[in-house]
Amino acid sequence: MRFMLLALLCCVFFACKKPQGFEYRDVQNFSIDSLGFDRSTISMNLVYFNPNNFGVDLKHVDCDVYINHNFLGKYTLDTTMHIAKRSEFSLPSKVQVDMRNVYRNSLNVLFSNEVQVDVTGNTRVGKAGFFVNVPFKYSGKHQLSLF
Rank of each mutant, 00 (worst) to 15 (best):
M1N: 08
K141Q: 00
E88F: 06
I67W: 01
N122A: 04
D62H: 04
I42Y: 12
F130A: 13
V109E: 05
S93F: 03
C11S: 11
F130I: 14
F89M: 08
T41Q: 15
K94P: 00
K137A: 11
T79V: 15
K74W: 08
N50Q: 09
V95I: 15
G126W: 04
Y24W: 09
V132L: 00
Q96E: 14
K127Q: 01
N68S: 04
H142Q: 15
L72K: 04
L77Y: 12
L5K: 08
N45D: 14
D118N: 13
F136S: 05
F111D: 02
Y103P: 01
F3K: 14
R2D: 08
D62L: 05
Q116R: 08
K127Y: 04
I42K: 13
N53G: 15
Y24I: 01
L110V: 10
F89Q: 13
F131D: 00
F3D: 15
I32H: 12
V119S: 05
L6N: 01
G21Y: 04
F49R: 03
M81G: 07
K59F: 08
P92W: 03
F14L: 07
S112D: 03
V134T: 10
S112H: 00
L72T: 00
I83F: 02
G21A: 06
V132G: 01
D118G: 07
G73M: 11
N122S: 02
V56C: 03
N122H: 07
M1S: 11
D62A: 05
P19R: 02
F30W: 14
F111M: 11
C63P: 05
L6P: 01
T76R: 14
V125P: 00
S34Q: 14
K94Q: 12
F136E: 04
V95M: 15
P92R: 05
R104C: 00
V102G: 00
N53E: 14
N50R: 04
N29M: 02
F13S: 11
L110R: 05
N133T: 03
P51S: 07
R100Y: 01
K17A: 01
H82R: 14
Q28W: 09
V117R: 00
F37G: 10
V65A: 14
F54G: 09
E88D: 15
S34E: 12
N29P: 01
S34I: 07
